[in-house]
Amino acid sequence: MKITSTLKDQRSFSETYVVLDTTTPFGKFHVGIGVGALESKNLFLTEVGKAAFDRMTELARSKEGKLHLVHVASTFKAKKLVPGSLMAAKPGDSIFFVCKDSPVYDVVSAQLSFTNSPAPVAVS
């Protein structure tokens, strides 16, 4: 499955967090990534991960789509969970990947094929 992602344009924010515009053959999604844990219904994230998650909840509130939390516990699972989560979501949904540690984060990032430049902004 071909997946492409670009960093969301966040010029109005003082910090840049990993929040992506992701396109697959199944649709377009808002995708976030953070390091932390999801235990029962409790979400624990690093400070940067929490900021990215907060941005994702803002985006999810402004859309009709759902916000999906996906806990990624290993690099092996990342290779299946990333494409599987994108295939299971409906176009317009938001997906936040909660990565167990930095190596898992790196694999999730690679699976999302993201570039560090934001999507072009149309000027009218």
Score class of each variant (00 low, 15 high):
Lys2Tyr: 14
Ile3Asn: 02
Ile3Thr: 08
Thr4Trp: 10
Thr4Met: 11
Thr6Cys: 07
Leu7Tyr: 08
Leu7Thr: 07
Asp9Tyr: 14
Arg11Asp: 14
Ser12Lys: 10
Phe13Leu: 11
Ser14Cys: 10
Glu15Thr: 09
Thr16Met: 02
Thr16Val: 04
Thr16Asn: 03
Thr16Pro: 00
Tyr17Gly: 08
Tyr17Pro: 05
Val18Arg: 04
Val18Gln: 06
Thr22Ile: 01
Thr24Pro: 01
Pro25Thr: 11
Gly27Cys: 09
Lys28Gly: 07
Gly34Lys: 00
Gly34Thr: 00
Gly34Tyr: 00
Val35Gly: 04
Val35His: 09
Gly36Met: 06
Gly36Ser: 04
Ala37Thr: 13
Leu38Thr: 08
Glu39Gln: 09
Ser40Trp: 02
Asn42Gln: 01
Asn42Phe: 00
Leu45Phe: 10
Leu45Pro: 06
Thr46Phe: 14
Glu47Phe: 13
Glu47Lys: 15
Val48Ser: 06
Gly49His: 06
Gly49Cys: 03
Gly49Trp: 05
Lys50Leu: 11
Phe53Tyr: 15
Thr57Asn: 03
Thr57Ile: 05
Glu58Lys: 08
Leu59Ala: 01
Ala60Thr: 12
Ser62Cys: 05
Lys63Val: 02
Lys63Gln: 12
Glu64Gln: 01
Glu64Asn: 01
Glu64Pro: 00
Gly65Trp: 08
Leu67Arg: 05
Leu67Gly: 04
Leu67Tyr: 05
Leu69Cys: 06
Val70Trp: 03
Val70Pro: 00
His71Arg: 05
His71Gly: 03
His71Phe: 14
Val72Cys: 04
Ser74Gly: 08
Thr75Asn: 10
Phe76Thr: 07
Phe76Arg: 08
Phe76Pro: 00
Ala78Phe: 07
Lys79Leu: 02
Ser85Arg: 04
Met87Lys: 08
Ala89Glu: 02
Lys90Val: 08
Pro91Arg: 08
Pro91Phe: 12
Pro91Gln: 11
Ser94Ile: 04
Ile95Tyr: 08
Phe96Trp: 12
Phe96Gly: 03
Phe96Ala: 03
Phe96Asn: 02
Phe97Tyr: 15
Cys99Tyr: 05
Cys99Pro: 06
Asp101Gln: 12
Ser102Met: 11
Pro103Gly: 10
Val104Ala: 09
Asp106Asn: 10
Asp106His: 09
Asp106Lys: 12
Asp106Ala: 11
Val107Ser: 06
Val108Thr: 09
Val108Met: 08
Ser109Asn: 13
Ser109Arg: 12
Ser109Met: 09
Ala110Glu: 09
Gln111Trp: 03
Gln111Met: 09
Gln111Gly: 04
Leu112Gln: 13
Leu112Tyr: 15
Ser113Trp: 02
Phe114Glu: 07
Phe114Gly: 04
Phe114Met: 13
Phe114Trp: 13
Asn116Val: 07
Asn116Gly: 14
Ser117Val: 15
Ser117Lys: 15
Ser117Gln: 14
Pro118Arg: 12
Pro118Tyr: 14
Pro118Ser: 13
Pro118Gly: 12
Pro120Met: 06
Pro120His: 06
Pro120Thr: 07
Pro120Gly: 03
Val121Trp: 05
Val121Thr: 14
Val123Gln: 00
Val123Thr: 01
Ser124Ile: 14
Ser124Lys: 15
Ser124Ala: 15
Ser124Glu: 14
